[in-house]
Simulated scan of single mutants.
Amino acid sequence: MFTRRTFLTGAGLGAAGAVALTACGNDSGGGGEGGTAVTVGFIADGNGATIVAIAEQEDLWAKHGLDPTIEEFTDGPLQIQALGTGDIDFGYIGPGALWLPMEGQATVVSLNSLGRADRVIAQPGIDSVAALRGKTVGVAEGTSSDMILSLALEHADMTTDDIERVAMDPSTIISAFTSGQIDAAAIWYPHIETIRQRVSDLVELDVAADFPELEFPACEVAGPDIATEKPEVLAKFQAVVKDALDWAAENNDQLPSLLADYLDAPEESIAAEMEHVQNLSSQDLLDAIEDGTAAEWLTSLNELYVEFDKTDEVVDVSSYFLGEEFVNA
């Protein structure tokens, strides 16, 4: 059995606490006795834990010949760093960190879901993005919410120069917002639900809905060279992901309960997050790979990252997305 960490509700957790959680993580091995040892990162929210939670419950690690150690992280960029240092073999990132694989720092091994769980939220009385001018806004650097904040400001004909932008980890955003130390925040569900329990009249700006032409995929990632250096391990992991995606798609009503149990989190918070997530079955992803839809999703985000100076150029999707390997796994 994996050991499980207490869900990051933000109660009293500052940056130091978040770093400590990230460094320690879940360090208990899985049930794949005799399987290939791998270390897998995840984020302690519903979308970020979906693959590892289902894989544990359904014993998918052993089924596909893997013996995992599971490590918890607070965000995607930290997992990209851990891939680079060899501390983990696979990890999870949201769409806000996809520019890092596009720059060659990792490879995408699967697209798990499409989500619109990110928001810009504001204290009561601030009812628009334009009203944030001159206000203090907390944001988790390099995450999907960071991207959503940039989109929101652009949509309002503003830039980050028009606000006081403060980089914070998610738990610090929660405590800073609930204590009134910041005027607004770019953050995602289920953290928004945690904040709402303390600031019931917060203003939620559904920024993602303003950009229906964009899709925001969450991904499993690995190091840049895994396809050439460890193709068999890659195939085993992608097989686990395929089965986990299918379980999530077929048992969507059971998913909040499973995830809440895995994360020791309130089920209502996870359910609130999952309302904004479209789980992809393995066939959904296979179809999207084969008809070019997945490449369109990724290219649109790549173009956005160029616009926001996150990356320099639009690159070929095949240079970082192992779609063909997923099809064959």
Results as ranks from 00 to 15, higher is better:
Ala117Trp: 11
Ser175Ala: 13
Ile121Leu: 00
His155Ile: 01
Ala176Arg: 04
Ala156Ser: 09
Met168Trp: 03
Leu151Glu: 09
Leu151Arg: 12
Thr160Leu: 13
Val108Lys: 09
Leu151Phe: 15
Ile163Gly: 00
Met147Val: 15
Thr107Ala: 15
Val109Glu: 15
Ile174Met: 10
Val166His: 06
Glu141Gly: 07
Ser144Lys: 12
Asp161Tyr: 07
His155Pro: 01
Ile163Phe: 09
Gly125Val: 13
Ile148Cys: 07
Ser128Gly: 07
Ile182Arg: 01
Ala167Cys: 05
Leu153Trp: 02
Arg119Gln: 07
Thr172Asp: 07
Ser179Trp: 04
Asp183Pro: 02
Asp183Asn: 05
Val109Trp: 11
Arg116Gly: 08
Val137Gly: 02
Met168His: 04
Gln105Thr: 13
Gly134Cys: 12
Thr143Val: 09
Leu132Arg: 02
Val139Trp: 00
Glu141Pro: 02
Leu111Asn: 13
Val120Met: 04
Met158Pro: 00
Asp157Met: 04
Arg116Lys: 08
Ala130Tyr: 03
Gly134Lys: 08
Ser175Asp: 11
Val166Met: 03
Leu149Thr: 04
Ile174Arg: 01
Thr143Asn: 04
Met168Phe: 09
Ala167Ser: 13
Arg165Val: 12
Glu164Thr: 14
Gln105Asn: 12
Ala176Trp: 02
Gly134Asp: 10
Ser113Met: 13
Val139Gln: 01
Gln123Ile: 11
Arg165Tyr: 11
Arg165Asp: 04
Lys135Val: 11
Asp183Trp: 04
Gly134Arg: 12
Val109Pro: 09
Thr107Gln: 14
Val109Tyr: 12
Phe177Gly: 00
Asp146His: 13
Arg119Thr: 02
Lys135Ala: 13
Asp157Phe: 09
Ser179Asn: 03
Ser110Met: 08
Gly115Met: 15
Ala167Gly: 11
Met147Leu: 15
Met147Arg: 10
Thr178Ser: 02
Ala140Phe: 06
Val108Ser: 10
Lys135Pro: 10
Asp118Met: 12
Val166Lys: 14
Ser179Gln: 08
Ile163Tyr: 06
Val120Gly: 03
Asp146Lys: 05
Met158Cys: 08
Asp118Leu: 07
Leu153Ser: 06
Leu151Cys: 11
Val129Glu: 01
Asp161Arg: 11
Ala156Tyr: 02
Ala152Gly: 12
Leu114Phe: 02
Gly142Met: 10
Asp118Gly: 13
Ser110Ile: 09
Asp162Tyr: 01
Ser179Ile: 01
Ser150Gly: 14
Ala140Leu: 04
Ala130Ser: 09
Ile174Asp: 02
Ala122Arg: 01
Thr107Leu: 11
Ser145Leu: 10
Thr107Met: 14
Glu141Ile: 10
Pro124Cys: 06
Leu114Ser: 05
